[in-house]
Amino acid sequence: MDNSESQPRLDVAAIHAATQGLRLGAPLLYFPAIGSTNTHVMELAREGAAEGLLVMTDEQTAGRGRIGRAWKSLPGRQLECSLLLRPTAFPPHFLVMASAVAVAESIEAVADVQAGIKWPNDVQVDGRKVCGILIETTSDFVVLGIGLNVNGTLADDPALAALATTLADACGRTLSREALAIELLQRLDARYADLCANGTAAREALRAAWRGRLVTLGRRVTLLQGEASISGVAEDVDESGALLLRRNDGTRQTVTWGDVSS
């Protein structure tokens, strides 16, 4: 498996046809290449675009992760998209959980490989990251960006391959990006509708699903927070998704940010 063969464009017509009637995914805008899907959705949101807008692309030329971290683009081999949401019934951290769970479940349904979540929302296969999720909020809307490494390989970049992988590398075959997109939209739409309609029961069910997939729990971890770091055992998560860390001195610390490095 390599990255040299040209790839067919994403079949957005198939995705659109299979997701008719969903709250999320319409209108669907497709760009063969775009700077950043998140940035574009934010621009459209500020112009008043309605909830559910989905922007998809085959190549992000200026894709970005959190705080501007670079996103390695594998043109035509990834699922790269951003959704516009305008939630009013629940805070954004439930979207952290909903998106990570929906991605993990979709991977298992389509690729038949087990997927876990590194706190709070890095989706992993074989202990390596396969999906980056970037959520940006304003007072009026939320933009949910998802970048999933589907086909191709990262083996040509050993440093990156130690930390990340593609689903194709993990399951040994080329996968349909359209099938993954449809699965993801359906699952995300169902979670979102549940959160909007069913309040506490939906939140608790989602949190349980998310917590059950957290590979971080029970492990001794180091959290990198800028130039500093804190270490301890990741004991649990609280109701808002914050990590409960038992530090070496016995104190328990509630952590809302940082990169889990081990």
Binding site: R66, I67, P92, H93, L95, V96, P120, N121, I133, L134, I135, E136, T137, T138, S139, S240, G241, A242, T256, W257
Partner: peptide, 11 residues
Amino acid sequence: IEALNVLNEVE
């Protein structure tokens, strides 16, 4: 403000 990997814009 970043929390749980969510960037919450401040206006």
